[in-house]
Amino acid sequence: MSETTDGLAFGSLALALLGGALRVSTPFLFVSLGECITEKSGRINLGLEGTLVLGAMGGYGIALLTGSPWLGVLAAGLCGVLMGLLHGALCSLPKVNDIAVGIALMLFGTGLAFFLGKPLIQPQAPMLPSVELGAWSDSEQLRSALRINVLLPLGLALAGLLHWGFRSSRWGLALRLVGDNAAAARALGYPVVPIRIGATAAGGFLAGVGGAFLSLYYPGSWNEGLSSGQGLMAVALVIFARWSPLRCALAALLFGAAGALGPALQSQGITAGYYLFNAAPYVLTLALMAASWTPGQTLAGAPGELSFTQR
């Protein structure tokens, strides 16, 4: 008897984690795919946390003004493009360090979003619709776990597309060449700086869209504590995923599930040590970083032009 209840509780915990992964992972997915594109070109943009927050604010504001959440998503992406262009342009100046610029833009983006977002805390913007993948089931828990936003499958498809593109398409190869060996790219006639700026802008677009997911779908509200560092974690996640878009998608789902662990366990009545479980995503970040860094060696799969792989 007790075995069946244990089995049931375990099943329901697994379902809760699945639901959490599907709900929470989208911003991680978009930011990490964006960062993946940027880093493939040989630049690191640590400012995506700022882009995410600014995108969340901009998307919420535009959705509120126009009444269309999809225009909000577009606006969030455009905010991201602007931030990406700024980062790309600044880093193209001589002797500018991309990591320092990234940190500056992270503070700039969050600060600007908090400043402009003051009047947006109270009103309710229209939300993005959800897709009922679980309509066939009669379990309410399963239905709610499978209630997803269309941005998630779009993001997963994009991960597949990038995976293919980095290997087999002309632009993907050019991007990787620029990121691995700028001198060789120049010798072949590829414009290194414009490609890098473009890659950073594209990364910014995706991070902005990730922000719109936060404010327009889940949790679906503009608030200054909205991101709580998800943009930063997503950047770390790219390194853990070793610059592979497919592994980024997996890692994003894993981080989503880790974020759902604390609330899920407590709602099941497993209440001891919730501080530890609430910290699960951060612990996971640290553990994965420690496991994936090998001192004295260039990281496998790291683009050769990244500032931290240069000696």
Partner: peptide, 22 residues
């Protein structure tokens, strides 16, 4: 459900959803 801090919107939404699922 204790979320751990005064303002954590994602965790609060997640807590609300898992409670409703239960």
């Amino acid at each position: 459900i204790f979320t751990g801090d005064w303002s954590l919107p994602v965790k609060e939404a997640e807590a609300a959803n898992s409670l409703i699922d239960q």
